[in-house]
Amino acid sequence: MRVLVQSEAFDAGAELNRFSAGHSGVGAVVSFTGVVRDSDGDLQEMVIEHYPGMTEKAITKILEEAMSRWALADALVIHRHGPLKTGDQIMMVATASAHRAAAFEAADFLMDYLKSRAPFWKKEVTDAGSAWVEAKDADEDALKRW
């Protein structure tokens, strides 16, 4: 289990290769990478604020919950903060399990919880000014699935 909260860019391919290696009995590795999207074509940057200290604790708790609910061999979360540009990788999640169902479900669970329960806040800076991204009711509702 590994949690990385950092401002620096990461190499998703290298991280996935490192994560996938060295697990005997693993038949499935699922990964998700979140990328900065320019919805309206005028994004200058996306700034991600976080709560140092709580962020690491909250993600660890979410990972521990996933490890207890699914038969995972391992799980990884990397989440960046600070100023990012369109196309930059924001975060990645990876799960490893004997079979794909557990790996897919656990990755989906991790994404839902990271979105609404890890203390990050996104601010979009556009040509028109800057605005905090508002949480969606759908994101909160997604937690009820679990």
């Binding site: 909250a58 609404s116 203390p119």
Partner: peptide
């Protein structure tokens, strides 16, 4: 103290209180 809580929670013994909007990670 860096754990999500409620507005009616007691503050006895608490060292740090944080206020913020709903989170938008991921």
């Amino acid at each position: 103290d860096q754990e999500l809580s409620d507005f009616d929670a007691p503050l006895a013994g608490v060292k740090e209180v944080a206020f913020f909007p709903p989170m938008t990670g991921g």
